[in-house]
């Protein structure tokens, strides 16, 4: 299997502070990879380096076969990204948002209309095609944002806490969408705070203070730490760090 993401000793410093400390991660194509960590552990900083929003200080990273330092435009063409903050345009309609992102990624008019129709149908948003996105409920917005991030059929999609603030039913639907994307061959790199979601991942890593403290399948991690749940694994790893930090 080829690697969708290959990170070697990637480091990011802000002055004296080391936000990401020489992490190494390999994600295989079609995998759903959970990137866990407490708040401030360095997850978002790491993702920002992988999607070309932040310059790495040291180390290397290849995403979709291209170097994020020297070939960031090639990387951008092949990835999708959904940030913590909802990032579609509230003052544009569902259709207009789809057209905009389709156009940006160079889809033809036909592709935009067929994929757009599929997308809207898949989300059961048919009646809301011409509604302003700002008027949709949060759960629908999140699902729409995810679908739009997949519109150009990226090889890798990065999801930074995609299910923050949505209800359990929507979260479940969201994960069904993630599996569907992975089944089509898209690699999913997802961060989350919900440990039940972590159990759904093929593999995951847990980041503590800028380092990767553990990595493996959920079953492997639970066996390694002798814990019944990922939640338990997470707490055991994260607690010493929190206590050392005086929290």
């Amino acid at each position: 299997m080829t690697l969708a993401i290959d990170v070697q000793r990637l480091t990011r410093r802000f002055g004296a502070f080391v936000a990401v400390d020489a992490i190494s991660v390999q994600v295989k194509t079609g995998e759903v990879f959970g990137f866990l960590g407490a708040n401030g552990a360095g997850k978002t900083t790491a993702i920002k380096m992988l999607i070309g929003l932040l310059e790495p200080t040291e180390g290397s990273a290849q995403v979709a076969g291209y170097d994020v330092r020297t070939q960031s435009e090639e990387v951008r063409r092949r990835i999708g990204y959904m940030s913590q903050r909802f990032s579609l345009y509230d003052d544009l309609t569902v259709r207009e948002n789809i057209q905009l992102y389709g156009g940006i990624y160079g889809l033809t008019d036909d592709e935009i209309s067929t994929r757009g129709a599929e997308l809207v149908g898949g989300l059961h948003l048919d009646g809301a095609h011409d509604a302003l996105v700002g008027t949709l409920p949060l759960g629908w917005k999140q699902k729409l944002a995810f679908s739009v991030a997949l519109l150009h059929r990226p090889l890798v999609v990065f999801l930074d806490e995609p299910t923050g603030g949505v209800d359990p039913v929507t979260r479940r639907q969201f994960w069904e969408m993630i599996y569907a994307a992975a089944a089509r061959g898209t690699t999913v790199f997802v961060t989350t705070h919900y440990m039940d979601e972590a159990e759904y991942c093929d593999r995951l890593s847990i980041m503590v203070d800028g380092r990767i403290a553990a990595m493996g399948t959920p079953a492997e991690l639970k066996a390694e730490f002798g814990a019944p749940t990922i939640d338990e694994v997470f707490v055991r790893l994260a607690r010493p760090a929190a206590m050392a930090g005086g929290v």
Partner: peptide, 13 residues
């Protein structure tokens, strides 16, 4: 709004 970050992740020059 965070939409600029989203645009910066796209191939728009």
């Amino acid at each position: 709004a965070g939409t600029l970050e989203q645009l910066n992740v796209t191939p728009v020059s």
